[in-house]
Amino acid sequence: VSVELPAPSSWKKLFYPNKVGSVKKTEVVFVAPTGEEISNRKQLEQYLKSHPGNPAIAEFDWTTSG
């Protein structure tokens, strides 16, 4: 189950709350306009370098507050 949070234009930000008793931590995933899922800052940096014209990296908020 995921919750969609505010994201930069043409992107989606999905929040996957951890299940009770789960060892997996809460996860935030950005979905690029191409449909590619980005789950960490390093991936995001690589994606933005190879896909010019996207929002600046500073516009991506990895917190769950939206």
Rank of each mutant, 00 (worst) to 15 (best):
V1A: 11
V1C: 15
V1E: 13
S2L: 09
S2R: 12
S2Q: 09
S2T: 11
V3A: 06
V3H: 09
V3M: 09
V3R: 07
V3F: 11
E4D: 08
E4Q: 09
E4F: 09
L5Y: 09
L5N: 05
L5I: 05
L5K: 05
L5Q: 06
L5R: 05
P6F: 07
P6I: 07
P6V: 07
P6M: 07
P6S: 08
P6K: 08
P6Q: 08
P6L: 07
A7H: 04
A7V: 05
A7F: 06
A7D: 03
A7R: 03
A7T: 04
A7K: 04
A7L: 04
P8C: 07
P8S: 04
P8R: 04
P8T: 04
P8G: 05
P8Q: 04
P8A: 04
S9N: 14
S9M: 12
S9A: 14
S9D: 14
S9G: 15
S9E: 13
S9Y: 11
S10Q: 14
S10H: 14
S10C: 15
S10A: 13
S10W: 08
S10G: 15
W11C: 03
W11H: 01
W11V: 01
W11S: 01
W11Q: 01
W11T: 02
K12D: 03
K12T: 09
K12W: 04
K12A: 06
K12P: 03
K12I: 09
K12H: 08
K13P: 02
K13E: 03
K13D: 02
K13I: 04
L14T: 04
L14G: 02
L14Q: 04
L14C: 10
F15D: 02
F15L: 11
F15W: 15
F15N: 05
F15T: 07
F15Y: 14
Y16V: 09
Y16G: 04
Y16M: 08
Y16D: 02
Y16R: 13
Y16W: 08
Y16E: 03
Y16K: 09
Y16T: 07
Y16C: 07
P17Y: 15
P17W: 15
P17A: 10
P17N: 09
P17H: 12
P17T: 15
P17M: 15
P17V: 15
N18A: 12
N18K: 10
N18I: 10
N18T: 09
N18P: 10
K19Q: 13
K19N: 11
K19I: 13
K19Y: 12
K19G: 14
K19C: 13
V20I: 12
V20E: 12
V20F: 13
V20Q: 11
V20A: 12
G21N: 10
G21H: 09
G21L: 07
G21E: 07
G21K: 06
G21F: 04
S22E: 11
S22M: 09
S22W: 07
S22V: 09
S22I: 08
S22R: 08
V23Q: 14
V23C: 14
V23K: 12
V23M: 14
V23H: 15
V23S: 14
V23A: 14
K24H: 15
K24P: 15
K24E: 14
K24R: 13
K24Y: 12
K24G: 15
K24Q: 14
K24M: 15
K24L: 14
K24I: 14
K24C: 15
K25H: 14
K25R: 13
K25N: 13
K25Q: 12
K25M: 11
K25W: 14
K25V: 11
T26A: 13
T26R: 12
T26K: 10
T26E: 13
T26I: 12
E27Y: 15
E27T: 15
E27D: 10
V28F: 05
V28M: 05
V28I: 13
V28D: 00
V28R: 01
V28E: 01
V28W: 03
V28L: 07
V28S: 02
V28C: 05
V28T: 05
V29G: 02
V29M: 07
V29L: 07
V29P: 00
V29Y: 08
V29A: 06
V29Q: 04
V29R: 08
F30E: 00
F30Q: 00
F30R: 00
F30W: 08
F30P: 00
F30T: 00
F30H: 01
F30G: 00
F30M: 02
F30K: 00
V31K: 05
V31D: 00
V31S: 02
V31I: 15
V31L: 10
V31Y: 07
V31C: 07
V31A: 03
V31T: 04
A32S: 11
A32L: 01
A32D: 00
A32E: 00
A32N: 01
A32T: 06
A32G: 02
A32C: 02
P33R: 02
P33W: 00
P33K: 01
T34L: 02
T34Q: 02
T34I: 00
T34K: 02
T34C: 05
T34N: 07
G35Q: 02
G35P: 00
G35N: 03
G35C: 03
G35V: 00
G35Y: 02
G35R: 03
G35E: 02
E36K: 04
E36Y: 04
E37I: 15
E37P: 08
E37V: 15
E37N: 10
E37H: 15
I38H: 02
I38W: 01
I38M: 05
I38L: 08
I38P: 00
I38C: 04
I38S: 00
I38R: 00
I38V: 07
S39G: 08
S39K: 14
S39D: 08
S39P: 06
S39H: 13
S39N: 10
N40T: 12
N40A: 04
N40Q: 05
N40K: 04
N40R: 04
N40L: 04
N40C: 07
N40H: 06
R41W: 10
R41H: 12
K42P: 08
K42D: 13
K42H: 12
K42E: 14
K42F: 14
Q43P: 01
Q43A: 10
Q43C: 07
Q43R: 07
Q43L: 07
Q43D: 13
Q43Y: 05
L44Y: 02
L44W: 01
L44D: 00
L44K: 00
L44Q: 01
L44G: 00
E45W: 14
E45P: 00
E45N: 08
E45L: 12
E45A: 13
E45H: 09
E45Q: 11
Q46I: 12
Q46Y: 10
Q46P: 01
Q46E: 13
Q46H: 09
Q46K: 11
Y47G: 00
Y47M: 00
Y47H: 02
Y47K: 00
Y47E: 00
Y47L: 00
Y47W: 05
Y47S: 00
Y47A: 00
Y47I: 01
L48W: 02
L48M: 03
L48F: 03
L48Y: 02
L48C: 02
L48P: 00
K49N: 13
K49W: 10
K49R: 12
K49D: 11
K49P: 00
S50N: 11
S50A: 11
S50P: 00
S50M: 12
S50F: 09
S50Q: 10
H51Q: 03
H51W: 04
H51S: 03
H51D: 01
H51E: 02
P52E: 06
P52I: 04
P52W: 04
P52A: 06
P52Y: 04
G53D: 08
G53K: 06
G53T: 05
G53V: 04
G53W: 05
G53N: 08
G53S: 06
N54W: 04
N54R: 03
N54Y: 04
N54D: 03
P55A: 06
P55G: 05
P55V: 06
P55E: 03
P55N: 04
P55W: 11
P55R: 03
P55H: 06
P55M: 04
A56W: 05
A56H: 13
A56D: 15
A56G: 12
A56N: 14
A56I: 07
I57K: 05
I57D: 04
I57Q: 06
I57S: 07
I57L: 12
A58V: 10
A58D: 14
A58P: 04
A58G: 12
A58C: 10
A58I: 09
E59D: 09
E59Y: 06
E59Q: 08
E59A: 09
E59G: 04
E59L: 08
F60P: 01
F60Q: 01
F60N: 01
F60T: 01
F60M: 01
F60G: 01
F60A: 01
F60V: 02
D61G: 04
D61S: 08
D61M: 05
D61L: 06
W62A: 01
W62L: 02
W62M: 02
W62I: 02
W62T: 02
W62P: 01
W62F: 08
W62S: 01
T63S: 14
T63K: 07
T63E: 09
T63H: 08
T63Q: 07
T63V: 06
T63A: 09
T63P: 03
T64R: 10
T64W: 14
T64C: 09
T64L: 12
T64S: 10
T64K: 07
S65D: 13
S65K: 11
S65V: 11
S65G: 12
S65L: 10
S65Y: 11
S65W: 09
S65A: 12
G66L: 12
G66F: 11
G66E: 11
G66Q: 10
G66V: 11
